[in-house]
Design a binder for these strands. Sequence first.
RNA 1: GCGCCAGUAGCUCAGCUGGAUAGAGCGGCAGCCUUCUAAGCUGCGGGUCGGAGGUUCGAGUCCUCCCUGGCGCGCCA
Length: 557
Amino acid sequence: MAQEQIRAALEAVAVQLGATAPVVVELETPRDKGHGDLSTNLAMQLAKPLRSAPRKIAEQIVAALRLGPDLVEAVEIAGPGFINFRLAPGQLNETVRTILAEGAEYGRQRVAQPLRVNVEFVSANPTGPLHVAHGRGAALGDCVASLLAWLGHEVTREFYVNDAGVQINRLGESLWARVQERAGREAAIPEQGYHGAYLLELAERLVGERGAGFADQPAATGVTACRDYAVAALKAEQRADLEAFRVRFDVFFDESRLYQTAPAGSADARSPIDRALAELEGHGALFEEEGALWLRTTAHGDDKDRVLRKSDGTYTYFLPDIAYHQDKAARGFDRSIDVWGADHHGYVPRMRAAMLALGHGDAFFAAIIVQLVTVLRGGEEVKMSKRAGDFITLRELVDEVGVDAARYFFLMRRSESPFAFDVDLATRQTDENPVFYVQMAHARMSGIFRVGGVDAGTVRAEGADIAALPEAMEADLVKTLGRFPLVVRRAAEALEPHRVTTYLEELARAAHLWYHHCHVLGEPAPVERARLALARATQIVLANGLSLLGLGAPERM
RNA sequence: GCGCCAGUAGCUCAGCUGGAUAGAGCGGCAGCCUUCUAAGCUGCGGGUCGGAGGUUCGAGUCCUCCCUGGCGCGCCA
């Protein structure tokens, strides 16, 4: 790629001028087309270390640069010391040739050091159906995982199941209460229990399967049976909903595993919890006070130290969480990226502190915080209350707007921004709806091949002179296409899928513009040939971008 | 009271990890269909980047303080 060649040349010249060896050359595409195709602020960066004026350094750099005329057409110094490069027209052909040659692989790359990355997301308690906020986390986690995979990292999608603890018992008690109600007895849903209508349905099913006598057993065994039944049923339902949302997990990790010891004869029979405690002890991170066992998280930036084992001898939820992350490290992951809801953001500092206390590097743990989702229908916010079991489920949303629109909408905003999901907009089949706008651009490219009777897969760049095409917007389109790999890389590094949707909308705009002004079929042979190649390249990049987001690329709409 | 996130055009939001004259969509106004999808395209208006200081060649972006909104601050999960 032209960019890498220029970067390498600049690095060499910088060292030659006396810059200390590892020079990081920033090369960006300027906003203003008048500033060329690529631009670097290198001279300004070197002004201080070299104790010289930026423009003077820029002149020295330009004088020493040796770039072939087939690569760069012009080099200019501008403003306070920018060096602007205008690429040779032949580079347009090079870009299209690369896209057509790589096809569905275009945009995928191979980082120098691939890592094993665990992306943990959704991780909803099996105490109810998934709701819209889970959908946002699901789309986001899935796409972050895809982005990292596109860079060449080895990615595992993981769902942590809180199948132990107080909430699960309350679920069992809640279902048992519904079963009792059904049998005509007085029964109350426990304090902080689950009131949703879905437990009524579960009670119906449970009694149907086990017989009317089920309600007559002692409460102790009844609650246990209800608990196991509800957890199994809700887990299955959640997985089915995710599957319908095109999210597939590699691993469902049960919290209960953390309490289990290894089979006799294992090298280390301790449970993950006990092992984590021992490791924290080994790092000198624990202390006892007032009968409780504490982790000194303040040593790593937390506000206050945190209790791991209460004075009554039971563990806080924090310890299994630490053990879980330690288990990820033990399974060989270099990074753990956790997608959490906004209501958990307060736990980020303590988890980071725990990981640092265990000797992990700063890069091991990262949390992506997903802000709240509200739903707009008819311009009005739909009221939701999780406590009352009154909320819009992911399933309902997907049924209403479709998988493509739901995924796209969840991905198109930065995760830290609160998001109002406008279901009317998502179902609208007009240009106001960005997902239709982008998919339509792909359908239009496909339409050219369909109408022309051309098999898109057979289009080749060889002999197609894109650089000779008459309209300026054609070169702009190619340059936009050429930015795709960089967009993927930046989005992956920042863990921000919305950069891809923003880019796709920009690309779609360029594609619609071009489609409208530049006719393909029936043009003079050289023009038709070049434009078929350009349409094919555009179709490929749109399809790759949509596929990265987990969306379909329709041939017609 | 403390912490985290947000505050950019009438509305919804981008802004490439500090770059050049802050962008897009929608809405508003004015245009464009014998041509591969008008589900589209073109043009015009529209801004004290919440406020005040600071850092430097250069700040929407980094630091400090303040204002507004959301979320969170337990030996609960």
